[in-house]
Design a binder for these strands. Structure first.
Lengths: 233, 233
DNA sequence: TGTACATCAGTGAACGCGCGTTCACTGATGTAC
DNA sequence: TGTACATCAGTGAACGCGCGTTCACTGATGTAC
């Protein structure tokens, strides 16, 4: 239905994209806090008030960038699965490939990464639209763990007493076919993956880790083993 | 030498502290990007230009807050070691206690936490003064691993080929008495601890982890095991 | 196919705001003799 | 102990800046008959 459009509709799509591109450029140059509607409008060749035809406020522009960023990492993670390389059965290799894709995207787009995985932007609260895109990376990781569990059935050690109810809730909520212990490990490892990436992107590894690629790969592999993935199919 | 001071020196210390306190209050209310010298001065009861007697610029005030924040988490981590509880020999329990102290501090001071472990403040680059305070938590953790290794001698699996030179450099740099594999694991686990904390503080666990205390404790324990710590002495 | 009207994109001026930093100054506190 | 001078904290006005958002408007593009 959207395939045939009038000039107006086409122009609207192109200009919306141009605004977001310029906004991303400013994001990369100055950070989210300094993203200014006026500067974007200036650069795009419009008067600042004209932007309000496309985004009702600065926050809405920010939201659009956030959604795009989540979608971009999500896509990067998903595509790393399709890439030739490890067979479908080498679960640990697929896991590592996904982790590397996330890291590569983050290093290539540090400010967009900061927008979604850094400190929340002050005064801005993410609307509902972001929670779908935000979970794409996690879904890819869960998928791999699911495949591996179906094939090999390796589960981490049982969860401690006090965590059991929460573990069962987690499993029921987003991984009903996995044992609760794996659901818990999965969530922990998911956050830990971003710990590794954030420390690298945000500079915490300066003067600590020099040769970062092999370091990350080793750490990511270890995370995979923490959720029951085994090397070599 | 600083113990006896004139009224001027004492006033200077007190007012400097009052400025930082008010700045921290604004940090908690609005975030680092909105920290404004003028607003701080207003609240402290001075004219804005008077602040320049205490901090030569906004960035210097920010730096002072960053150093204080690193010192605060560092102190929290160190004090958790002195607290009564696990004996000196239960390394895993001590490890977990330190992790919990870091988490508790972060949850109690989310904006200060964001200042040091969130996205870097745009346009601000941390000076040398911050790197000492920044490493205090890591030093506490390394200390525990060192104790445990001296007592039990458990090391993680050997590092892969490509990482060996970097692993040896790491060990030589900040843990000469540990095997390289442990130094690598230590750095990875250090970043992963902050991954867990950041996801909780920054809201990434909303609708994912509900009962967070036991979840964190279990995950922190697992991290400890990843650096060779064993339960029960 | 042509005309009348509705929709929409973009303009330009304005509102009201707060910011970091500089500067010449006043007056109080400290120091040296 | 008393005086003369230096140091320092705080004032108030000013500079120059950019921001988000609103509003009445012009003129072009689309739509219905």
């Amino acid at each position: 239905m959207t395939s045939v459009q009038g000039a107006r509709a086409r122009a609207r799509i192109e200009i919306t994209a141009a605004i977001k591109d310029e906004a991303r450029r400013q994001l990369a140059a100055e950070g989210a806090a300094k993203l200014s509607l006026r500067a974007v409008a200036r650069e795009v060749g419009m008067v600042s008030s004209a932007l309000y035809r496309y985004f009702p406020s600065r926050d809405d522009l920010l939201t659009a960038l956030i959604v795009d960023a989540y979608d971009a990492v999500g896509t990067a993670a998903e595509q790393s699965l399709d890439a030739p390389g490890p067979g479908r059965a080498d679960h640990l290799a697929r896991w590592t490939a996904v982790c590397q894709a996330v890291r590569a995207w983050a290093l290539a787009h540090p400010h967009e990464y900061a927008l979604i995985y850094g400190s929340p932007v002050p005064g801005y609260s993410a609307p509902q639209d972001t929670i779908g895109p935000a979970s794409r990376v996690a879904l890819v990781l869960i998928g791999i763990v699911r495949d591996a569990y179906a094939a090999d059935g390796v589960a981490p050690p049982p969860v401690p007493e006090g965590l059991r109810p929460e573990a069962e809730r987690m499993a029921a909520d987003f991984a009903p076919d996995l044992p609760p212990a794996l659901a818990v490990a999965m969530v922990a490892v998911w956050s830990q993956l971003f710990g590794l990436v954030s420390f690298e992107v945000f500079g915490q590894f300066n003067r600590v880790v020099e040769d970062r690629e092999p370091f990350f790969t080793a750490a990511a592999g270890r995370l995979g083993r923490d959720v029951g993935l085994l090397p070599r199919p």
